[in-house]
Amino acid sequence: MIWTALTTIMVILGLFGLTETVYASMKSFGIIRRISTAGLEERYNLEKSYYLLSTIVWVILLSRIVASGVFWITNESLIPLIPGAMCQFGVNQAGAPYSWIDDGVKLFVVFAYGVWLSLDLINRRVKGGPLMLTLSKIFLILAPLLFLEAFLDVAFYVTVSPVVVPCCRTVFTASNPLPCPYCFVFHDAPMFLVVIVSYGLAICLVFWSLFIRHYSFKFKEIADVGMNAIRKLTLMALGFSVLGTIAVIPALFQVLGTTGFAP
């Protein structure tokens, strides 16, 4: 392991995610198992139990979203510590195979976690928590992803070592139509970071709105709050897509005008 403040934070967040996911999964499973046969009093107790679960899941998911951001910062900070690494491609080679899988998983987690978070936000605003069972089930579906993501973080940062790695130009040669994605986004044209994140968030927000609409059809109690949320989310999606489009113009001009690494 390469001990730095950031790798330590990532390992701690990973271990926290692992333990909390196991605890929350068991609690969630208990709610699903008991709710169908629960009487009025037990249902009240389950509701209380669900609010505890909801708070724990919020903490887990928010910590994982923070970890998703810190992940890229940590990898960027490891570049000078790994001989031969010029970009995050080199860092990933030093932490293979966990690093590569972790990279792929990290691209989708915000989308997946956002589904639960947006639905729970609506559930909290409606009396009686009509989505309690649905959210417990969705969490159980998310649990393997959460567990995998946290495990990959721990495995990656514990196994990464300062071994000599070949640079990304061995793969992304002049004949390759794609540039090295890490060099491209983090070094050559950072404006594309704004483009990619903005477009990614816009797509996520639209899909979360679709999920809310789907559940608003199923549970009429949440229709009003759901519509209000959809209005806000789609407006935000439009805002991010406009921001991404504004950013893509200087980003393209920069790439087309670049002749080499020399500033």
């Binding site: 477009y199 789609t234 439009l238 897509s241 991404g244």
Partner: peptide, 20 residues
């Protein structure tokens, strides 16, 4: 991709807010 995302967001903003 940019054009598709922009259209998708605009359509979502226009269509999804129709009452259920």
């Amino acid at each position: 991709i940019g054009i598709i995302v922009l259209i998708l967001s605009f359509v979502a903003w226009k269509k999804l807010i129709k009452p259920i």
